[in-house]
Design a protein around this nucleic acid. Structure first.
Lengths: 185, 185
DNA sequence: CCGCAAATACTCGGTTTCGAGCGATCGGAG
DNA sequence: CTCCGATCGCTCGAAACCGAGTATTTGCGG
């Protein structure tokens, strides 16, 4: 059980039993699809895995019309415990991660000073609009639910701001020559 | 071709032809294994994929003793072009990413105010030591190579600092009641 | 009241990822 | 010279991942 989507599922079932499709829908409604990669295929895999571990259980299998059956899953006692353990662990221990931008920056040299500045400028622009969006949806959300339920957006905003700041500085450093290009300029 | 490790391989071959094992070794030497997830299995897969695309080519197959053969790969002209295109794209376009901490924070509520603070404190501590490490290796590296070749560390440091700052503030907000816990405290 | 887009609900199988394992060689302690 | 652990270099199958496809139903514009 490594897929964070499993955590999301447990978190939802904490409130009430659901069937997979409803889980996906709820996650999207709450904007949690910004924090979890929710794809249908993986969702069903993950649910099966949680069953195997005994963290969730099938509650009922409803058949409405001739549509595919919906199986409703609920949390087990073990599942409830594992959930908090899971959250706790991920909060405590920073995991090694590999954001694509980090990879790309490692080879920034390949773009040459002009190319690098040009590309970084575009990124900055995109970051600004995405920040705008996040701030907007955060404001909206705050009118509906307590702050605790949107802290993850605050985190995302903060990180995006930091990145934007860094990108800006690097652009400046390249242009001012504080970040010189070795060989072929 | 989506695996960033492919980009790392192209980047290395830019300098000189190599065999897969040597690629992994070099990436580790340069500390680029902080920016790319380099696992042996994936490496060979990725090399095969790059061959399929015609971005690299086998240069020679050396047999030393009775050890497994080493196949040395070099960049093609197309490969060289694709490499910069790849870097450029990843710099320009922020990709949706799903860091585990973002997931965990989404369910911070589950830990309760005391548990959350306790866990966040530990994270802060770990972040501080890992920052120390990064700053150290950055200093060391700067004495060996031009700054351009270590910018990715500067980025990583900056991001870690931002996260640390945020974590600190949230701890403060929970303790001061600015971030209250709805239901059951 | 007809037809068509959107929503409901899931399955299936191809690709990707990965790490354990494997067989060899090298370096150096004793 | 001989044993052992580290390094070399790769293969393989199991698991994870994901998106296109399927089949039904609901809603609603005309």
């Amino acid at each position: 059980m490594k897929n964070p989507l499993g955590m999301a599922v447990l978190g939802l079932l904490l409130e009430s039993p659901l069937h997979p499709h409803a889980m996906a829908a709820t996650l999207r409604e709450r904007g949690l699809d910004r924090a979890f990669k929710v794809t249908t295929g993986s969702l069903y895999d993950v649910v099966r895995a949680l069953m195997r571990e005994g963290w969730i259980e099938a509650r009922e299998t409803v058949k409405v019309g001739a549509r595919p059956e919906r199986t409703v899953y609920g949390l087990t006692e073990v599942g409830r415990e594992e959930f908090t353990r899971w959250v706790d662990r991920l909060v405590r221990e920073p995991q090694p991660e590999f954001p694509k931008f980090l990879s790309a920056v490692s080879y920034l040299g390949a773009l040459g000073p002009r190319g690098a500045v040009e590309a970084l400028r575009e990124r900055a622009e995109r970051l600004r609009t995405s920040l705008e969006e996040m701030r907007g949806s955060h404001r909206d959300a705050l009118e509906q639910v307590p702050r605790l339920f949107v802290v993850e957006v605050e985190y995302a905003v903060r990180m995006a701001e930091a990145e934007l700041g860094w990108v800006g500085e690097i652009i400046g450093d390249v242009e001012s020559g504080r970040l010189p290009w070795p060989e072929e300029s």
